[in-house]
Design a binder for these strands. Structure first.
Lengths: 317, 317
DNA sequence: GTGCTCGCTGTCGATCTTCATATCAAAACC
DNA sequence: GGTTTTGATATGAAGATCGACAGCGAGCAC
């Protein structure tokens, strides 16, 4: 005998509320509907659930026991509700984020960790890549969003791009680097030191070359170390006098923890902006909006701090 | 957001069976029905339960969690099923039995205890009364069945009577009573002893008077103790040399435990039979049939033993 | 590319819900 | 104690929803 769990829930509510009418009301159903449902249920069981011929409906022993089970089913159903509510409101869920390695490790991951602190229940899956692979993965739906630097004119027609930070780059070195003690830094000063470069297929590597060109030091540049992750680059920087080019935002986020700093040298920065790329109409998980909001607000604050710092640095220079 | 527990059950089954078609089959529903139900469910949630565009339908994380809840709901539903099955098959339930006090305490209660040992889950409620009150309570439905001695012609038109034992009475006394040591007992012998009588409104009391008349001792009968329950009567008998009249079946059941026995004196026994009275078409709880069957089979055995004993006693006399 | 399996959609019949109303048991009243 | 009132449940008929069958379309494998 298969029993309909909804019947049990209805029974539970009737017993809890002490009457068919009240139970129906609590269930958001009409009284006749509930009455008939219970009548059918009783008929199918062949055993009475309510004492016959009693006007304020009183459950039999079996009715009480089944009602207890119905109550448990109802509780489980409520449990499912809160689960769904959490996911619906973006406070829980699974999100696959791809992005350029340095920016992900330097800026996004700390922000995600921060968000996770605030609302537990989110799960992130991180993937690394540059524009082409990220775009492909978005179209494949193997990631939900990508975080990367882009030119406005580079945005694919089938995607949305939401800028979150200016793409400003800086020359970075360890804290206490000889160059940081100088008042004004000349190109000759810089030329003394060798460079650590980001992965050679990264946009940042092209930025690096541009920077070096712009300061006229392109001739005999020494690359001591190339490729790797943010961790390896900063680790290398911290132990040597090498220089590198990094997004200002990344340096800003990690400079205290990883003991690196920026050189007060103006480098021209590309017109790209760091932002979030996503498929148009891609039906994002609701958690995505929560994450995007979080990233945006924090990056806006970050951008403001960076702006202030740069003005201060310019004044000092 | 109220969630339909049935949707969760369906989801659980789909996940468990690893496919929509198999799930539908396991649920005894058609595949399109299940498909549409899940589609509506997803739409209402606004969150996908299955990874979109995957052919062997694969649940999302949320889908998995909800399925787990659905599985628990399903288990509760099964629990309810076995509960109902037990009640349906009479292996559980609540039964209100009324009857004449001595017969209830002496014969029926031990049998019910015996039955309870075999199939736990039954609940009994015992009530005492004689014909009129028992019939009224049957019609009021405050008891489900009555156990009492009846004449065939006394059976109300709206009731069924199922005989279970002959109404044979005997003279009872304590084991080791002086009269038990004699070979043959004369009326004079009996006249020496005083009597314990059952409640004066009981049919057994009328039997007692008839017995006394039939042995011609009606003149100076002494009643030492009257009324009370089987426990009080037997307790009184055991400590004195008093006599009483009891149904043979009652004596047979309790003689070892309560140290009483019968006197080998023929007493004429009424034409009544001990049996079970119930309302016609009274829609008995299924447990009632189980109980009735149990009582009948044991009483049949009891009757057979009594028969044998009486033949033996007659031989000896 | 081609076959195959599996899931989605259109249509019809069955079931369930609802509003209005009858019936009934318990309480209140005379 | 009998009758009326009241509060609560059952029932009837119309409308909405759900389920089954047939047919279509999309992923997956070879």
């Amino acid at each position: 005998m298969k029993i309909d769990s909804e019947h049990l829930e209805i029974l539970a509510m009737i017993v809890e509320r002490g009457g068919l009418t009240e139970g129906a009301e609590a269930l958001g159903k009409s009284q006749p509907s509930v009455s008939r449902t219970m009548a059918i249920f009783e008929k199918r069981l062949g055993v009475p659930l309510f004492e016959p011929g009693r006007r304020p409906l009183r459950p039999t022993d079996l009715g009480l026991e089944l009602a207890r089970i119905g109550q448990r089913i109802h509780n489980l159903s409520l449990e499912a509700s809160v689960l769904v509510d959490r996911v619906q409101s973006g406070r829980a869920g699974h999100l696959r984020i791809g992005g350029t390695p340095l920016f992900m490790d330097g800026v996004i991951t700390p922000l995600l960790a921060d968000l996770q602190e605030q609302v537990s229940g989110l799960q992130f899956e991180q993937a690394y890549g540059y524009f082409d692979s990220l775009a492909t993965r978005l179209r494949n739906k193997t990631i939900d969003m990508a975080v990367l630097p882009m030119h406005a004119r580079q945005i694919p027609i089938d995607m949305d791009f939401l800028p979150i930070l200016s793409g400003r780059n800086v020359i970075a070195c360890r804290q206490g680097h000889p160059l940081t003690r100088r008042g004004a830094i000349t190109l000759a000063d810089i030329a003394e030191f060798s460079w650590v470069s980001p992965p050679q297929d990264s946009p940042l590597f092209r930025d690096l070359k541009r920077v070096i060109q712009s300061i006229g030091a392109s001739e005999n540049v020494k690359f001591t170390f190339s490729g790797g992750t943010l961790a390896s680059i900063t680790s290398f920087l911290a132990r040597t006098n090498c220089l590198t080019v990094l997004p200002y935002s990344v340096v800003h986020m990690v400079r205290d923890a990883l003991r690196i700093t920026t050189l007060p040298v103006r480098v021209d920065h590309p017109e790209r902006q760091l932002g979030i790329l996503s498929l148009k109409g891609g039906d994002q998980p609701t958690a995505a909006q929560t994450v995007i909001d979080h990233i945006r607000s924090h990056c806006a604050a970050l951008e403001a701090r960076i702006e202030k710092e740069q003005q201060f640095a310019a004044l000092r220079a």
